[in-house]
Structures are given as C-alpha cells and as structure tokens.
C-alpha cells in the first residue's frame, strides 16, 4: 500500500478493490481510468478534493495536473460539497418551451436556495438543497426534465415539486 492510501483512512478495502477493478478495464492505458475514478470518488465522498486528484494521479502513475485538467473540464465533476439533494433542471430549448425556467425559479424559492455558492449554483443555508440548471438531459419528449442527484424526473410540475420537497425534508431528520 502506498503512503497516500495510509493518509486517507476512509479508503476501505472495498473502495480499493473497486478502484482496481476499474483500472483492469483499461488494459491498454491506465490513464483511461482517470475519469471513471473521479466518478467513483465523487460517488463515495460527494466531491473531488485536491487529495482525490493527488491520490488518483499517484494510483495511475500520472502527474497530478493530468488528473486536475480533466477534473476541471467536465461539468459533472464537483470541487466542493453541494446540497444533500441536488436539483439539476434542464435549461435547453424543449424544456424551456415546457416551462423549465419557471420551474427552476419555483424550486429555488421553495427550498430557499438563495446563496450562489458556485457559478449559477444556488444552495439553501442549511446545506440540504442545491439547485442549478443543466443542459439537455436527452428526455425532451417528457419536458420539463430534471434530476435529483442521480435520479431522473420527467414531466415535472410545480405541484410535483410541492409534493417531493416535504418528503425530502422529512428524510433528513
């Protein structure tokens, strides 16, 4: 085991096994595993920290900058913790025609997401909810479309939001 792994005690064996399994899927070049490992890290820890970049780089025998440059290129990779529930509302044309801008404002207001914590990402003060626009989610026939974390929601209405929010709030306690 290398030194960084020791410095990060939360990396349990299961995680390491998963990492090795992913690397094995790229027999020609380990570097190909960079984005999959960033995904894995984010799934486990919520966002990609500086330590994450360094750990992955070391694991793949790359310069940290090689991992850093992809971590900063792909919009889905996060560099800071966001809400426990992350609303990602589709902004693109078919959804806009179906009212996604109004929906966005409604969600923002309903969960009190008024702090702009990153470019166009709004978070509630209690840190439970974040709301942002994303581009077309490839479900335009069911506009407006959004995601809550990794889950897709289609034909979303304000009523639906009013229904979901109390349930999510209940879950946090």
């Amino acid at each position: 085991m290398n030194t960084v792994e020791k410095e990060l005690p939360q990396l349990d064996q299961e995680f390491i096994d998963e990492v090795n399994k992913i690397i094995s899927q790229y027999p020609v070049s380990k570097r190909s595993a960079s984005l999959p490992l960033l995904h894995l890290w984010q799934e486990h820890f919520g966002y990609v920290s500086k330590e994450a970049v360094e750990w992955i780089a070391q694991k793949l025998e790359l310069e940290p900058i090689a991992v850093e440059e992809i971590a900063t290129f792909y919009p889905m990779i996060r560099h800071r913790p966001l809400g426990k529930y992350q609303f990602k509302v589709c902004r693109t044309l078919s959804c806009a025609l179906a009212g996604s801008y109004q929906l966005f404002e409604h969600i923002k207001k309903s969960c009190n997401a008024c702090n702009e914590v990153d470019h166009n990402i709004y978070q509630s003060s209690d840190g439970q909810f974040s709301v942002e626009f994303v581009e077309c989610l490839a479900a335009c026939g069911n506009a407006p479309v959004m995601m809550i974390n990794e889950e897709e929601w289609m034909n979303v209405t304000k009523d639906k939001i009013n229904e979901i929010l109390p349930e999510l709030s209940k879950k946090q306690n």
Partner: peptide
Amino acid sequence: DESEPGTFKDR
C-alpha cells in the same frame, strides 16, 4: 453520448 438537444432515441 446522446447529447444533441432534442434527441432521446438511444435512451
């Protein structure tokens, strides 16, 4: 990658 806005067939 199905990323062209308006497209949802591969899904």
